[in-house]
Write a protein that binds this DNA or RNA. Sequence first.
DNA 1: TCTGCTACATCGGTATCCAATGTATCGATA
DNA 2: TATCGATACATTGGATACCGATGTAGCAGA
Lengths: 113, 113
Amino acid sequence: MAGKIRAQLLKGTTTLLVLTVLRDGELYGYEIAQRIREKSGGAFIPSEGALYPALHALEADGALGASWRESDRGPRRRYYKITTSGVRMLEEHAQEWASFSLAMGQAVGSGER
Amino acid sequence: MAGKIRAQLLKGTTTLLVLTVLRDGELYGYEIAQRIREKSGGAFIPSEGALYPALHALEADGALGASWRESDRGPRRRYYKITTSGVRMLEEHAQEWASFSLAMGQAVGSGER
DNA sequence: TCTGCTACATCGGTATCCAATGTATCGATA
DNA sequence: TATCGATACATTGGATACCGATGTAGCAGA
């Protein structure tokens, strides 16, 4: 199954994707997943079992600030906001991804010309 | 540590890298690692703890054929050769990587165009 | 004899994915 | 008013696959 390959490729990218969509503004969990889906052209939709632990870890690391807010319809939401330290982490992850994908493209020969 | 990010990004890429270098000819384990290092411009050097299990799994899956041969200097070597099924697997992995990295570049906005 | 390089191999620890399951709120509808 | 579906957050167990450390072994040169 091709999905199994992707599941492995995805490792480590959730953090980068989350930080990326939060750079543009405050969002709550469910919305973060939808935003990632949009930005990736439908290619990525983080599962809840991946997203929420990632958000908790980022919050514990001080990369994100969070607060509960009521919703007019449906249950309350936890809004996340990127911190200064989170921006730094984002830059580091983005740089890491850039050099990584460059080297991969070079190695598998799909990036030539 | 930036290396921790990379360790996660690497997941799932070892198979693709191994199959890629073996497409160009028969190689033994140690040599496979060196070839990957060259092809990636020194960015990737699979650790032995990642490489050998990957080779065993690919052989068990029928993607690789293998045989022992003596060396003039040093210990014997296990040579690996890609099979027809392995070539198919390579194409699948390469395609998966291409669409994955494209979607990532799009999502993080690091301009792959 | 000791060191270093080659060469294959395995182990434990860690990180992080997915699928499944659970709790809860609210609007619509039967 | 009972049920259903969508939203929303959360945790759990199982699987995968990385790294570093460790082990075995052959051979060359100091």
